[in-house]
């Protein structure tokens, strides 16, 4: 269907909206199909609007203004603390990755660290099964474990300290970059 718009259509719509018809326009609308459709649509929709305007429960303008200010303040507060929470999350993620990295990197040392415990536990289990506890063997295992742990602790502490310092620098750099934005 090809769109056809009568030149008086806008006048008809305005007459329906304002409620002031002149005789000629009314006569025209009665005979022009396009204007009759426009008048019908405009009349019914405007009646609905009149009903809505009378019955709608609209909040007071002051209340709306107050709420809008609250929302804006909350948004501003969220924006202000955004860099802090970003650095927090970033630090947690870095910490987890560093921990995993150190574990992978020093896997051999960690295994060696826990070896005495494993052998001690194994020895205790076999001894218990035979109802014969070799106290001397346990003491030797514990002494060797403590010795290895002390030597490992020295090198591990250096690594952990270095990673920690690096992490702090990265966190500060990220924080300042974000806050500048």
């Amino acid at each position: 269907m090809k769109p056809f718009e009568c030149e008086k259509e806008s006048l008809v719509i305005e007459a329906v909206r304002s409620g002031s018809w002149d005789a000629d326009l009314r006569e025209h609308a009665a005979h022009c199909e396009s204007c009759a459709d426009a008048a019908l649509a405009a009349r019914v929709l405007n009646e609905m609007r009149t009903i809505d305007q009378a019955e709608a429960r609209i909040p007071d303008a002051g209340l709306m203004w107050w709420k809008a200010q609250l929302v804006a303040k909350r948004t501003a507060a969220e924006r202000a603390t955004q860099p802090i929470s970003f650095v927090e999350r970033f630090t947690y993620v870095c910490g987890v990755f560093c921990f995993i990295g150190v574990c992978v990197w020093q896997w051999a040392a960690i295994r060696a660290w826990f070896a005495p415990i494993k052998s001690g536990f194994h020895g205790a289990r076999s001894a218990a099964s035979a109802w014969h506890l070799d106290l001397h063997g346990m003491q030797t295992s514990i002494a060797s474990w403590a010795e290895k742990a002390a030597s490992l602790q020295k090198s591990s502490l250096t690594i952990v300290f270095s990673v920690g310092v690096l992490l702090i620098f990265v966190a500060f750099a990220a924080y300042f970059t974000r806050s500048e934005e």
Binding site: R49, D52, A61, G62, M64, W65
Partner: peptide, 22 residues
């Protein structure tokens, strides 16, 4: 400012609600 908003709101709130509702 608040006064301008009140004037604008009183003019537009009901038509806007009606539009959204319909």
């Amino acid at each position: 400012d608040e006064q301008s908003f009140r004037t604008f709101y009183d003019r537009t709130a009901r038509p806007l609600w009606s539009y959204l509702y319909r």
